[in-house]
Simulated scan of single mutants.
Amino acid sequence: MAEALYEVTDKRFSRKVLGSARLEELHTGCRWTEGPVWFSDHDCLYFSDIPNQRVLRYLASDNSVSTYLSPSNFANGHTRDRQGRLISCEHGTRRVTRSEPDGSVTVLADGFGGKKLNSPNDVVVASDGSIWFTDPSYGIISDYEGYLSPQEQSVHGVYRIDGETGAVTLVISDFIQPNGLAFSPDESRLYVADSGASHDPEAPRHIRAFDVVDGGKAVRDAGPFAVIDNGIPDGFRVDSDGWVWCSAGDGVHVFDDTGALTGKILVPQRVSNLTFGGKRRNRLFITATTSLYALYVNARGAQTP
């Protein structure tokens, strides 16, 4: 196994990766890549270049990258819902939106309690159709990834949009900077990253776990799950075995379902986010600073819409 690509902590990690696979740089020239989401029916990946106000599209058929949307309202994280529609978090407008088949945009959330959201960051959809998103302040603390603006919310929260009524509820309120989030394969647990150490060295740099309760409408704190030892946790995904693949300063850190570090995939640039894609959900797409990378692995992403 190539030492330049993998760092093995637990021998089980060796079964999750492919020694013959290589890390491919698919695209570069961005300012800060983020929010990758795979659309299997179109065999393509959408991802954000936040400061450049672009959403880009990678086509697997010919390895091409083109601009899908510009200006993008400083879009960050994306996912797709159960109907195959693109859900996006926009820093610039401080809202969560849905792109409809006819090209129109539906606003799903832009405030809470009569006040503007901070800057929705990352988003995930549950099997009941509910949409969960994080709302740190990254998009309003400068003019680089959004617009410098006063914060109206008293917390940096995690919110749930009901899939039937569209009602927005605050489900977690004690984060410093909530960032990436994902469900376990059976949706009994929600994981949320706290990237507060991005601006405060003394702040947490961990992923927290929450048990999903009340019929999927609320969560109960289950404590810290995993700590990133290089950089901060940003975006992450869960594979079909419940292992967590998380962004970090030196690459992708892979944790088993108990939160134990099993190994790392070393990437030349700071990783912001990642997702599983390809025909068998075994191609890991990685957004890292200025570039989009891909690596085939011996794991499959948890089933998503």
Rank of each mutant, 00 (worst) to 15 (best):
G84M: 12
V212D: 08
L45F: 10
R280F: 13
I140K: 05
D10M: 08
A222E: 01
T289E: 14
Y138R: 01
G216H: 03
P233H: 04
E187M: 06
N298S: 13
V192R: 02
R281C: 11
V252Y: 03
G111V: 03
W243I: 08
R208Y: 11
S88E: 08
S104T: 09
T134H: 01
D250S: 15
R160Q: 00
K116A: 12
G215K: 02
A60W: 13
W38F: 07
S184M: 02
W38I: 05
V244L: 08
D200F: 00
I50D: 00
C89T: 02
G103Y: 01
V96C: 04
V17H: 08
N63I: 06
E145C: 04
S99L: 11
E7A: 15
S272D: 07
D241W: 05
F74R: 05
G84C: 11
T67P: 12
K116T: 10
Q83P: 09
A260Q: 15
R98G: 11
A182P: 00
A288P: 04
L261V: 07
N73M: 01
R22N: 15
D102R: 12
K217G: 03
R270N: 05
L18T: 07
H91R: 06
S247G: 14
D234I: 02
Q177S: 00
G249I: 03
E187Q: 14
F13R: 14
P233N: 11
S127M: 08
V107G: 00
I228R: 13
D49N: 15
D200H: 08
D194L: 01
A197V: 06
R94M: 06
E24R: 15
W243E: 14
L266G: 07
S61G: 05
R208D: 03
V124H: 06
S119L: 01
P224L: 01
G251I: 12
G19V: 04
K279S: 15
L274E: 05
R80G: 09
T28P: 12
D229K: 08
I161Y: 02
L274G: 11
S195R: 07
G249V: 02
A4W: 14
R80Q: 15
S272A: 09
S154H: 00
V244I: 13
A182Y: 05
L69F: 08
S127G: 07
W32M: 01
L26V: 10
N282C: 09
S14G: 14
L274Q: 14
V227D: 09
D122Q: 05
G84D: 14
V171R: 01
C246Q: 02
K264V: 08
R31S: 12
H91W: 03
L108T: 01
I141R: 02
R95D: 03
V238H: 07
Q83C: 13
Y159C: 08
P305C: 13
A302Q: 10
I232S: 06
V238D: 05
Y138A: 00
S48H: 10
G249H: 07
S142H: 05
D81M: 04
R15Y: 13
L26S: 14
F47H: 14
A222G: 04
R57P: 13
P178R: 01
A193C: 07
L274P: 02
G29M: 13
S72E: 07
A21V: 04
N73D: 12
V271L: 10
P178C: 01
I232R: 11
K217V: 04
